[in-house]
Design a protein around this nucleic acid. Sequence first.
DNA 1: CCCCATCTATCTATCGATAGATAGCCGTTG
DNA 2: CAACGGCTATCTATCGATAGATAGATGGGG
Lengths: 186, 186
Amino acid sequence: MTADTKQVIMDAARAMVQARGYNGLSFRDLAKEVGVKSASVHYHFPTKGDLGAALARRYADEAIEIFDGFLEASQDVGACLRMYTDVFRSALSNDNRMCLCGIMAAEHDDLPAEVRAEVDRFTDVNIRWLVKLLSRGKKAATGAIEQRALAIFAAVEGAQLVARGRGDIAVYDQAIEAYRAAGLLP
Amino acid sequence: MTADTKQVIMDAARAMVQARGYNGLSFRDLAKEVGVKSASVHYHFPTKGDLGAALARRYADEAIEIFDGFLEASQDVGACLRMYTDVFRSALSNDNRMCLCGIMAAEHDDLPAEVRAEVDRFTDVNIRWLVKLLSRGKKAATGAIEQRALAIFAAVEGAQLVARGRGDIAVYDQAIEAYRAAGLLP
DNA sequence: CCCCATCTATCTATCGATAGATAGCCGTTG
DNA sequence: CAACGGCTATCTATCGATAGATAGATGGGG
């Protein structure tokens, strides 16, 4: 019940970064949102880089769990990919937010090194999972599968970016549908 | 020879935004880069919003000119699309930068209204051009063409975002190639 | 002579970060 | 049991740096 403050801080921080980006996150606004003082945030996360890295690390870890759950839930590649694209869709439906690591990737050059490393790991997690999934059905060359996995991830992130810019989740749905119609998604 | 300071400021500002985002742009850094004082930047662009909007407006205007040049240069849809994707590629090859409006789209919610409006216009410009191009050959339903145009734009922006995160332009090339292999691009 | 462009100097607000005080809890110990 | 000491988590207060922005002086060109 105690609602561990550290977790509450991370939850609020993630939402703020997904809405305004890493540079748009301030300790004061975050503390106000949570209902503590900014010094308390620094107690749990000494530097902003520590906080950002912790957010991205947890985000990537959660992604692994969620995605692997899909692999267990269904043997169908198409069904798994639908669940996959729905995860990215849910960020948009949650107050027009973006994938945490997608928005941070845009700020890539400005990120502290420890944050950048975790953001990069999120990309790795996605691509590795997609490769694993795509390898199920087809027996295409490994290189071709990796290329396809990369393209799917990029296309999904792009659809999210554009849909968010439009402020219209239907844009995301249309892009995904077009990917499917074109054959990028099965 | 005078090298109009206002244009020099805009050139430097665009490069800085493409590298670090709108929030990462500071009047002091920009002025130092150009070799003037920050007050001089304020003389030409009273507020940061004015500067950002001017950047995005010029960016969208240039895009119109460049893209329309492609339509005149070739009648082939595939050739035009190759030139189109090469434009976005060139941002990456120029010091791993991103499309100005792509990176600003990520910061969408944090943008001053006048900047957001111009960023949105850039998306419009792209989609309208793609619709015009795709309408050349096929006589598919208007809705299907718009959907395809949206998907292509989103996929290209996403490929740029991911490639930039990897710091490897080959990632962009692979994604584009996969789009083509899948049939999203002709 | 005036005006455009730039400068110097400075303002207020906010940034991330730190020092030091305080209050509650928990185990040890006399 | 009760008192003590240490630990955790939070607070108040403040730091220096930097953000965007402004007022007013300066100087060169038409």
